[in-house]
Structure formats: structure tokens, C-alpha cells
Amino acid sequence: MSTINFAAREINFKIVYYGPGLSGKTTNLKMIYERVPGDSKGEMVSLATEDERTLFFDFLPLDLGTVNGFKTRFHLYTVPGQVFYNSSRKLILRGVDGIVFVADSAPNRLRANAESLRNLRENLLEYDLRLSEIPYVLQINKRDLDEALPSDMIRKVLDPSGEVPAFDAVAARFEGVFEPLRGVSRMVLEKLAQKA
């Protein structure tokens, strides 16, 4: 699925942050934008409502660097988490190479996490894709909440087999933000190398 531009000597990957509304997807991108050096990032674009809820998507291009003469780039996207924006979520998944699923640790969001993951599977099927075939990691966000559910409980709901790499995070404090991105980036690069 990666786009290789032989003329421009670029390899491009699309990574999508998915998850329920208010789980912290946009916060992840904002933190990445703040912490990545200026020469490794492009402009961040946010299509949001006036109250800063994602309307269509957030977008952040990152340059990893050049290997064997090819520039390697990641385009990071978030989807709108609110249930009624499913058409937009579906569009953003077109051509996805890797997914970071951002789960919310709040007790009253456990069901929303599960429903969002089910929605992700359904939307991928529209492109004839299965989640098990795509590089995918879990970020369990908002670990600083007083009543945060145990990470293990959230993992058991979202990934009963325990096969998906999972990372605890407090994205608003830049804790556990780079780790899942690094994890999924590594997985998409490995997948490309295997397919070549």
C-alpha cells in the first residue's frame, strides 16, 4: 500500500490515528508536532469545528530521512472520533499503511473503545482490508485519570489474544506518544521490506 515515487525518490506511508471521540488522537499529533525537530516535519493541518473537535481530519507530514537514496516519509492522519462522522472516517482510511488505535482509559469509555474498534474493522472491510493484515498498535491513553481502568482490562477487551503491541500513555503530558508511533513505523517499514 505504500507509495513509492521513483522519480522523486520517495517512499511514503500513511499512518492513521483511530479511536473514539475525545480519546486524544489530535493531542497525539499536536505533541508530535511540538517535539519533532523543524527539519523533519511539515505543516500541521487541522480541519476542526469551532470548539476544536475534529471535523474531517488532522494531518502532519514527517520526514524520517534518506536511506539508499530514497527519502522516507510518514503522513500522519487522525479521524474524527464522534460516531456520526463515519463517512469521513471511511475516507481517511483509504490507502492506510499503519494504524495507532488510541483508547480512552475512563471507565465510562470502555464501550466506546470497543465500538470504535468494531467500526474500524467494518470500515477497513470497505477497502477489502482486515485489521490483522495491517501494522497496528494500541495506545492506552489518559492513564493519569483517577478512576482509569487497569490497562490489562482495556487490552483484554480490545485485543483478547494479547498480540497487538500496546503502550500506556498520557498524551497531554507527552508520555507514551513517540513509542506507539515508533512501533507502528517500524512495522510498516518491515512489511515493505518483506513484500519487496
Binding site: V36, L64, N68, F178, E179, R186
Partner: peptide, 26 residues
């Protein structure tokens, strides 16, 4: 047929180093 790219071990090692540089060691 499109040109082919060689993703050998050297390529994997190099991308690993770049990931370390951008996001910090694993």
C-alpha cells in the same frame, strides 16, 4: 514492470537508526 527496490538488511538497519534519531531509542 516498475523498477524494483532492494530492501536488504542494510536498509532495515538504516531505517532503524533513523527511527532512533527521530523518536529516540526503543
Amino acid at each position: 514492470e516498475a523498477p524494483s527496490l532492494d530492501f536488504d538488511e542494510g536498509w532495515t538497519e538504516s531505517t532503524e537508526k533513523l527511527l532512533d534519531g527521530l523518536f529516540g531509542p526503543r
